[in-house]
Design a protein around this nucleic acid. Structure first.
Lengths: 221, 221, 221, 221
DNA sequence: GATGAATGAGGGTTCATTCAT
DNA sequence: AATGAATGAACCCTCATTCAT
């Protein structure tokens, strides 16, 4: 077996290990934030939660910043995976696609409630470059929502003078489920929240002719 | 001059000094948060920004918590003053009162952009009691908005199945001007933002018969 | 009236004021130590307790050291006044003079319990010179006790191979009423303590022939 | 070597390190107190004296309190070990056991002179719980002395109306060797001190019939 | 003479990061 | 690859002391 093959095999093995460790650490971070709040994630606490040594974390992440960044990227990744899937699952109807996309956002947020909040802490950890990257990704992330609104407008089902604002507001309201969870949880479940917000948002932009067709979305359960 | 008068004069002078210093420190905190981000507010940094010594801060605030709390309370205070005033100024029309209230919220937020963001940092500094207090005040603060929506509904001008959600969403969108300023500032001024959001929110809840009457609010400039 | 007379009058007045202020401050210090423990005497706390400003303390005492030193000296002064008086009051009998002296020590300690403890804190406050001075004074202070023991030995009523040790032990046991007050107060009053210690100490040194004569001192109430 | 053996070996090694570091730190604390006085033990100073970093101290002790407590407990531990041993070594004679116990107390105090003094500084460092614990332990510590006195009384060799006071006085006099070292060192060695105090204390309580038997203890060298 | 606002060195503590093993 | 003991800068806070009024 030539040397290069060996190298490739080793590289692959290493790649797997890196993947594994990273996941292990990010999962531990998520558990920690869930349990102790998102500011309680010290490197030693993270190591202990993950069952590894502090030193090891630095083998896979350059700094605490990097870990936090990765936690946030994980959420953005989940958006990138889940939202398109939900849109696809919603069929061809642009309005149902929009509603599905929003619901998917909210569900991802709900699953990563504490990680989602991280973005709102321009922590000293996160340096300027990291912050810019996250902002860019967040905007990219909202693209499916924006596309859905635009498609609705083009199809005539929606009327919005500023489709991008409509989309961005929806993104914000998805985040709000995490940011203001202490408020909403007093009166709503996640599914209540989703249908109420969908109803409200659609009321603002749906074409009058379409109201009957989407009555199920417009009157929240 | 009798002794009591002297005492009163001294008390008054002290009161002025306390007021002055508090303002000086809170202003410095605001500037610091503006310039360095709101987590860079160490007591050393604050002292140096305000041009005083660390020890002096503790003459006017019991702890770092207290300073942060005061910064936040200042914003909530501004709401308590400005929002009712704006509502009054809007006359008797419930919808214009609602629009005026929202605009007032946004303008206060804009003036305290970095302080407003503080609330979203469940900072370890702010202890549980402080956090609860702020949450309670935030909910109280949104009361005028809630009242305005309800009045609109009762007058028949608005139709909302969940008036409280409508009001809370508006509060959130006011906060969003601070939270997502980096995004909105790319395409909007504050006034653009206000009128766009007012138009969108009203579209969702205004009674069809009222649309013509409020056409100026419904089509953003 | 010639200038010098004015000066003398002023000097006298000043002298009185100094005396007054010093007493006021030392009393406040005593109250404070009594109420909050002897380590809680900060200069600001002292000022506030005395009802004066911090600055004023520095007009009458050069430093915190000086205040503490003065508090201790006050106790030593009380010894210098009270112990000889008690000895005198005890008449000519050397053994009753000794017992009276010890009782006087204990009562002074009891009245200045917290100040007495101060001596045992080689506080950084008290500089080397101050410490030496206190040690010297403490030894001087014990002189009446030592003299009383020696007189007893010379009169034949006491037999002690080391009279100075007997005297110093008694001084220590007087201090112990302050140092170990938490222990003794569980089972004794001050007067119990005095008579028990007198009985024990005398038992060790009294001449056998004298036992009947001092039976009242030897069997504690 | 099986994993468990490795683990055990590692655990043992860690145990040794903990032991080593703790000793190193407590020794440094003792040296520092010896040299600079016991209030000069700042964590910085301790770290520097021990030749380690501040942070490291917190790996082995939870707080400054803990360090101080450990220093004191070390002394109390030494009592718990040395005193019973000395009593045993003294044979069956209750009076020689008492004398041996007292001597052991004094020797332990002498070896930890500065640590022993710590107890007398109701330092703000030591919290209420710690202080109570120490008081309890101090009382427990004096138990052997108390038992020895009582045994002497029961055997008829001693006559004491308050055996507990006799025992507590002896404890105090042992402490006094540390508290008043500046005084006693002028005229005595430790052994002088011990035999003088033993002679004096026994004189007070020994039964007349026993005096000849213990003449060696009663007339100090 | 008297005030008390202001100072700032110094204290205890935490935690991201490093490096010898 | 993995460990975790060790580091030390930085944090929040206190309080003896000063000085302009």
């Amino acid at each position: 077996m030539p040397a290069t093959s060996i190298d490739h095999a080793q590289d692959a093995a290493r790649q797997v290990l890196v993947e594994q460790r990273s996941r292990q650490l990010l999962d531990a971070a998520a558990r920690l934030m869930e349990r102790e709040g998102s500011e309680a994630v010290s490197m030693q606490a993270l190591a202990s939660e993950a069952g590894v040594s502090v030193g090891l974390i630095y083998r896979y992440f350059g700094s605490k910043d990097d870990v936090l960044l990765a936690v946030i990227l994980q959420v953005l990744d989940a958006f990138a995976v889940e939202v398109p899937r939900a849109i696809q699952a919603a069929g061809d109807d642009p309005i149902r696609r929009l509603a599905g996309a929003f619901a998917a956002y909210c569900r991802v947020i709900d699953e990563h409630r504490h990680a989602a909040v991280l973005t709102y802490r321009e922590s000293k950890s996160l340096d300027a470059a990291g912050r810019e990257r996250i902002k860019r990704l967040e905007v990219e992330t909202s693209e499916p929502l924006r596309a859905a609104v635009r498609a609705g407008v083009e199809s005539g089902a929606l009327r919005a003078s500023d489709p991008d604002l409509v989309a961005y507001n929806l993104l914000l309201l998805a985040h709000a489920w995490a940011l203001k969870h202490w408020y909403f949880e007093k009166t709503m479940t996640l599914e209540n929240y989703i249908s109420a917000q969908v109803a409200l948002a659609l009321s603002a932009v749906i074409a009058p002719t379409q109201k009957r067709k989407y009555a199920d979305l417009l009157s929240p359960s």
